[in-house]
Design a binder for these strands. Structure first.
Length: 574
RNA sequence: UGGGAUGUAGUGUAAUGGUAACACUGCAGAUUCUGGUUCUGCCUUUGGGGGUUCGAAUCCCUCCAUCCCAGCCA
């Protein structure tokens, strides 16, 4: 490496260097001190295929793939499939789809813990031969007793001193399926008195007569995490094995396994704080429960914090990567504000979402001085933030729909939308002034009558007069009926279940409001799933990936726009 | 009462012995053909107590608080 010519360059170099997180520091230090084989860092993302990936996993994915990318190494996808009772092919497929959606590629480095079953088995046999593992016949209940407690040491199992020959024979019989589930277990011989419970002779293998999604019925003994994970890392040449904080206590077990004789690569484990977000539940158990109980429509329900859920909700992968980047990486267990995530989507969608006009709660407007039967086409920008996105034509006519919220007969102070005698602008079209209302027998407003100023075409007037309000609108005869699903937080409480202990007590009954017969401009027929849209003044929306069609458009609200008027109303107690 | 970790604005993350900062939130204002965007400003921070030092978020001692661990789950 060439020396920097002068101090100025050194300063320049340091200037735009973002501060490193603790993992980056470790890696840079390891690289600088030549502690990394081939100078190539190797990380891995090791999900268990027992559920769908959620927002928490995004952090882990970004850390592992991101680090590999940043330091020119590689990241393996390894499905940690050692418990056939809980795992399923459906989950494997969804995991791969979700990682790709985020924009990461593991190339040919796709592995399965089950790829290593044979090697793991041979290592176990070797351990037995070296007197470092034994077959235990203690029942699960007995094992628990013998393990001791957090504050008292455990005691040795009577089987701990079984002869190597007997251990070998029994383990072989376990493998052959000659013993029922629960009858025996292979245990490491470490230290029953260790203050770290994970070191009190952890189980290495258990008997399970379950069909494995990948290995079928080939095995009836399955290796445990503390044995499988470190050895899988070693086999794959992982250099930095990054996991969440709750595995800190397992690091000694990890180090024990990676120092077994004959394992010549030594990966190291580092732990970071998992991502928590308020108003969300993130455990797979709770998410599975929401699905099973039918509280949500499935793992990809747009209210779910799963990757497939937020994808269907209309979040972009870029915004989610930005989100976890902003959250940062550290060892402090905290809770990130939901609002940060919303900020990130809004920021991204503001730049890319196509603007359309859709009236969610239609109120008929009749422009009395506009010729009957006349149709004009109004040119509208597709995205004011990005003129390159071009324009489109929107039909305008005498009868329109505006948002019911945009008209009031007796407006409060500060309301500058349509009310009798007030002039507002119809976005991109004309200025209108309300002249009267038509009500039904119950007193509900069914129609607002207006006059328009023909000179205001395009949204400005020659005299340059200003209006305070601008409403979006849809021509009644051209309007496309659509279904709009307004999604909100699934939970009302910042910490679901924090009060009662049951997170289901805090469900938001209004987390989904379905609106039928919303009125949208004809352009909506040309949208399709994957599009990012903004319904002007209403929020960001996306065509639903399952139910949308040009004939029956269905849109999901991704996130609302920031709404300072709503805040003001709240303050005024309206 | 065992072991492992962590404490910096409301939230998250920087500052690694030299003037505590950035982002989000909140509040106030300006701009605006979206009450959006954009822009400006404001608010509030080193868990407590000792010590070392000219100087401590940073080093030492001590106390406190919070989280994780007793699956044949991962």
């Amino acid at each position: 490496m060439e020396e920097l010519p002068n101090n100025i360059d050194k300063e320049e170099a340091g200037k735009d260097k973002a501060p490193l997180n603790f993992l980056e520091r470790i890696i840079e230090d390891d690289l600088a001190n030549e502690r990394v084989p081939n100078n190539t860092i190797v990380t891995r993302f090791p999900p268990e295929p027992n559920g769908y990936l959620h927002i928490g996993h995004i952090k882990s994915i970004c850390i592992n793939f991101g680090l590999a990318e940043k330091y020119g190494g590689r990241c393996h996808l390894r499905l940690d499939d050692t418990n056939p009772e809980k795992e399923d092919m459906e989950y494997i497929e969804s995991i791969k789809r979700d990682i790709r959606w985020l924009g990461f590629d593991w190339g040919s480095y796709e592995f399965y813990a089950s790829d290593y079953y044979q090697q793991l088995y041979e290592i176990a046999v070797r351990l037995i031969k070296e007197g470092k593992a034994y077959v235990d016949s203690l029942s699960p209940e007995q094992m628990k007793e013998y393990r001791g407690t957090l504050t008292t040491p455990g005691k040795n199992s009577p089987d701990r001193d079984r002869s190597i020959e007997d251990n070998l024979r029994l383990f072989e019989e376990m493998r052959q399926g000659r013993h029922p589930e629960g009858s025996f277990v292979l245990r490491a011989k470490i230290d029953m008195a260790s203050p770290n419970i994970n070191l009190r002779d952890p189980a290495l293998y258990r008997i399970k007569f379950a069909t494995h999604p990948r290995t079928g019925d080939k095995w009836c003994i399955y290796p445990m995490y503390d044995f499988t994970h470190p050895i899988s890392d070693a086999i794959e040449g992982i250099t930095h094995s990054i996991c969440t904080l709750e595995f800190e206590d397992h690091r000694p077990a990890y180090d024990w396994a990676t120092s077994i004789d004959g394992i010549d690569h030594t990966p190291h484990q580092y732990e970071f704080a998992r991502l928590n977000i308020n108003y969300c539940v993130m455990s797979k158990r709770k998410l599975l429960n929401l699905v099973k109980q039918g509280i949500v429509s499935g793992w990809d329900d747009p209210r779910m914090p799963t990757i497939s859920g937020i994808r269907r909700r209309g979040y972009s992968p870029e915004s989610m990567r930005d989100f976890v980047a902003r959250v940062g990486v550290a060892k402090v267990e905290g809770v990130v504000d939901y609002s940060l995530m919303e900020f990130c989507v809004r920021e991204d969608l503001n730049k890319r979402a196509k603007r359309l006009m859709a009236v969610l709660d239609p109120l008929k407007v009749v422009i009395d001085n506009y010729p009957e039967g006349k149709v004009e086409y109004i040119t509208s920008e597709n995205n004011p933030e990005n003129p390159e996105d071009g324009t489109r034509e929107i039909p305008f006519s005498r009868e329109l729909y505006i948002e019911r919220e945009d008209f009031m007969e007796a407006p409060p102070k500060g309301y500058h939308r349509l009310y009798p005698g007030n002039e507002i602008r119809l976005k991109h079209a004309y200025y209108i002034t309300a002249s009267g209302v038509v009500k039904d027998e119950d007193g509900n407003i069914v129609e607002v009558h207006c006059t328009y100023d023909p000179l205001s075409k395009g949204g400005t007037t020659p005299d340059g007069r200003k209006v305070k309000g601008t409403s979006h609108w849809v021509s009644a005869s051209h309007a496309v009926d659509c279904e709009v699903r307004l999604y909100d937080k699934l939970f009302l409480s910042e910490y679901p279940g924090g009060e009662t202990g049951n997170y289901l007590d805090d469900l938001n009954p209004e987390s989904l409001i379905v609106l039928e017969h919303c009125k949208a401009e004809p352009e909506v027929r040309r949208t399709s799933p994957g599009d990012y849209l903004q319904f002007i003044r209403n929020g960001y929306f996306c065509p639903d990936s399952k139910d949308h069609s040009p004939e029956h458009p269905v849109f999901n609200r991704t996130v609302t726009l920031k709404d300072s008027w709503a805040k003001m109303k709240q303050k005024m107690g309206l």
